[in-house]
Design a protein around this nucleic acid. Sequence first.
DNA 1: CTCATATATCAATAAATAATGATATATTAT
DNA 2: ATAATATATCATTATTTATTGATATATGAG
Lengths: 95, 95
Amino acid sequence: MSRADNLKLLKALSEETRYRIIETLLKGEKCACEIPFLIHRTQSNTSMQLLKLVDLGVLKSRREGRKIIYSIKNRKVYSIFRVLGVLKNGYKIIF
Amino acid sequence: MSRADNLKLLKALSEETRYRIIETLLKGEKCACEIPFLIHRTQSNTSMQLLKLVDLGVLKSRREGRKIIYSIKNRKVYSIFRVLGVLKNGYKIIF
DNA sequence: CTCATATATCAATAAATAATGATATATTAT
DNA sequence: ATAATATATCATTATTTATTGATATATGAG
């Protein structure tokens, strides 16, 4: 991965609103509608950062009925949050 | 480590000038005088970011004659740059 | 079709941060 | 003490980025 790519990923994670989004998504995928409450941010702010995270390749989303479900796409995020001590060591099992 | 601490570290690494400084220091400690040339930045800019990295706990420095030698202090930096593919896998041997 | 809910977008402002050029402060050698 | 080199600091400007409130768009239920 290039320096530009790495900077993109680091920048994505280094802002508190986005960091909180990742934190909560590490526990599993979530509907866009519940995230603002979980991270204590407004709907608009959350939406913008969610879209930015998708744009940066960190998250992915899918529609389910009238809801949009967000989840982590970039596997490196798990490794980084493990290094940071947010996740317990060991393998991340993806079902 | 707290969310604030993690954000501090991520922010430290997510800016290009600082990222370049880390990149070059991953290869070994360096004198402040040679870093601006190595990373293609001005002396002033480099100095400010070096001090910021020390302040953020990422780097440490020591005087050697009239030179100041900078090196990586926070071991997590190695792990993160390994995840990012900047460093080869395996253990980092510190002499 | 209408309503309610969910999500995205927009323009504007605010806030944070980086970069610059000039200057000041060490430190060492002569 | 002077000069040369190395590093840090300062005030300013420029740049980037986040946040907000309002509004628009989409979707599905009834």
